[in-house]
Simulated scan of single mutants.
Amino acid sequence: MKYYLIYFLFFISFILGSCKQMTSDDGVLMAAKQFQMDVSHDFVQLIDVRTPEEFDKGHLEHAINIDFKSDNFLNNIEKLNSDKPVYIYCRTGKRSTKSVPYFKKAGFKTIYNLKHGFLGWKSSGLPYKVNN
């Protein structure tokens, strides 16, 4: 009986630990629902690092498109306020993760990265905008 209690407590702590945000050198990875709560304000620095073509097909409201693949990516993010947190995303999370060192080089200290990117956002059924 004692071992069942230990296993149960271990299982519960594992589940609760999985629900928290994950912090790493790649910024703070946030699940879509938490990301949505944080970026629901238009004063948040929300950056979509996908290509303009991808951005036009669907993006988060109030997002600014700064293409990670462009030659002037670093110059463009240096125009942002590095004293404020920045929220970033791409299609699946790979480009946004690769962009984190550039944001750090530009002076950003607090970087939030959407876990599973825009596809994860869409699969969660969250709203987004499409450019005409």
Rank of each mutant, 00 (worst) to 15 (best):
L80V: 08
F8I: 00
N76A: 04
L9P: 01
I12S: 09
S40I: 10
K129S: 14
I111H: 00
L74Y: 07
D25G: 14
V100K: 09
T51Q: 06
R95F: 01
H116V: 07
R50A: 00
N113L: 06
G93I: 03
S96M: 05
Y7N: 05
H41L: 13
H41E: 10
S13H: 04
S70T: 09
Q36M: 14
Y4N: 12
W121N: 03
N72V: 05
M37I: 06
Y3P: 09
G27K: 01
H116M: 14
I6Y: 06
D26A: 10
M22E: 15
A31Y: 12
V130E: 15
L9I: 14
K84D: 10
Y102E: 13
M22N: 14
D67E: 09
V28Q: 06
S123Y: 03
I88V: 15
I66H: 06
F35H: 03
D26S: 08
M37N: 14
S24P: 13
F14L: 12
K79T: 04
T23F: 13
L119V: 13
T92W: 09
L80I: 08
V49I: 06
K69T: 12
I64A: 14
V86T: 11
G120D: 01
G120L: 06
S24G: 05
Q45L: 05
G117A: 00
